[in-house]
Design a protein around this nucleic acid. Structure first.
Lengths: 267, 267
DNA sequence: CGAATATTTGAGGCCTATCAAAGTGAGTGG
DNA sequence: CCACTCACTTTGATAGGCCTCAAATATTCG
């Protein structure tokens, strides 16, 4: 327990951006290859649903867990630490993401997962998940697809970390999030943004101090506004320009023959 | 065609490090979940095997391809470019890797793949691959596992790009490669190393000039020697120390119940 | 051998890190 | 209700790692 109080704006009363769902919410696994019956099978395999405080480790490095953890509402992140103490976020987890997908096949993971906001998470026992994967091709394909999308996102992060300026890194991160959170609109888009500047730094390979200075500049340029944990984008197009952002890589609507999957048991 | 001739030391006469195989070589898919019958099914689904020159694009961004390309011998890499022209390698492909695994499920990819050495590649049509995945759980699990291992490697790359010094980045890259190539030994390990300094830079988020200076320093410290496209590691332990390297993340022998998979049709 | 490609060297400068400290805001307890 | 604390944000000054530009040397290959 870090003892840090939850951030009010991420409680369930702000449902417009990530509506809390009872169990497996509708957009939870955004995969188009899930037949309705498969989706129900998934839902029934879940053993528990739990709330966690912000800034609390859900999974610690080298820990063995027997559950896949699916984020239903709230944010979390994966991170790893270098031997000199430096920290790097390797994934941002928003509703619908699986915190430890690779625990489906591997005994240990080389990262930790920490909550960012008040969050509710659902547990899918590994054994059940393996059984589901064996029995339902759509579920198998969904998990595989999730791993591949994670890869695509990681590739773009690598491009940011390796070759983009602090400005472009921040801009790109924000653009990515608008897509992943399903935020639409061209002007004055606003949404809750729980990341601290230090966490942004650990995500983008910068120091919190430099993040601060860069954000101030971007504010001055009218690219973003960020106060009270709310991020607003006055002009999406110019932010994308600053980021060199093209949403294609997220493969949102590009699943191969999504419609060709057997959807026999549509409820 | 870049017109650059193949590097002699990567021809088949140097089989001690990546023995060229006829079709799908033994270590091709190193997955322990492949039953022998499944492995044979994979092999039979392959349509062609082809040689390519070094420095040639196998896959171009936004190109649609209908084949998964499996590396049998030689090296290649995935890369993406930023809008300002900067380039970032996002994966290094060695024998056994699949160049475009995500084309199994997605129509387009957001990267290009370029050969690094003389290379031979095998093609697995997407349709066949999807059929195999549907029919053979072990193949499905193998592909999923490959995606997850790619993720684990990408996570470590992010840590390098974001938080490690040029020294540690180079050291870590080399340590990773020794494991992935199956190179063993503690002292005076040597193996062919086709990466140019500029490519190392594009991989590690550095300029070729800085890579050069750093490598010279590391040479001076006795950490590595690199000449004639051959890399030798005088002392593996101290290189790992400089890198903060722990091989665990590659999940080499950690597959869940590898033995529990149905191996009924063992030839 | 000559053209093209890599590696190496040098000088100068910018981006970002580091160190230090003040300002801000929310929650706590008296 | 107000001091108090803790965490986060902001500001300043300094420095260092890495980049940029430029050119010489070495290597590869036709």
């Amino acid at each position: 327990m870090t003892g840090i109080a939850p951030i009010p704006s991420y409680r369930s009363d702000h449902s417009e951006h990530w509506p809390s769902r009872h169990l497996l919410g509708s957009s939870l696994l955004r995969s188009p290859c899930l037949a309705k019956g498969e989706w129900r099978a998934l839902e029934q395999a879940v053993t528990w649903s739990k709330r966690f405080d912000p800034h609390k480790d859900l999974i610690s490095e080298a820990e063995r867990a027997d559950n896949l953890l699916i984020v239903v509402s709230g944010w979390a992140y994966r991170y790893t630490c270098a031997s000199d103490g430096g920290r790097q976020l390797t994934a941002l987890l928003v509703p619908g993401d699986i915190a430890n997908l690779d625990m489906l096949l591997f005994e240990q993971v080389a990262y930790s997962v920490r909550t960012l906001t008040d969050i509710t998470v659902v547990a899918l026992p590994r054994k059940q998940a393996l059984a589901l994967v064996e029995e339902h091709p759509g579920i198998a394909r969904t998990f595989t697809g999730l791993a591949m999308i994670e890869n695509a996102i990681a590739s773009k992060w690598m491009l940011s970390l390796g070759r983009r300026s602090a400005h472009a890194r921040i801009a790109h991160l924000i653009c990515e999030l608008t897509i992943r959170l399903g935020i639409v609109g061209e002007a004055d888009v606003a949404f809750p943004f729980p990341l601290r500047q230090e966490q942004i730094g650990d995500l983008l390979g910068l120091t919190n101090i430099h993040v601060n200075r860069t954000i101030q500049q971007m504010r001055g340029q009218g690219l973003i506004r960020l106060c009270d944990r709310t991020l607003t984008i006055p002009d999406v197009a110019s932010l994308r320009g600053a980021a060199g952002f093209d949403p294609g890589y997220l493969n949102l609507h590009r699943h191969i023959d999504a419609a060709a999957r057997p959807t026999a048991d549509v409820a």
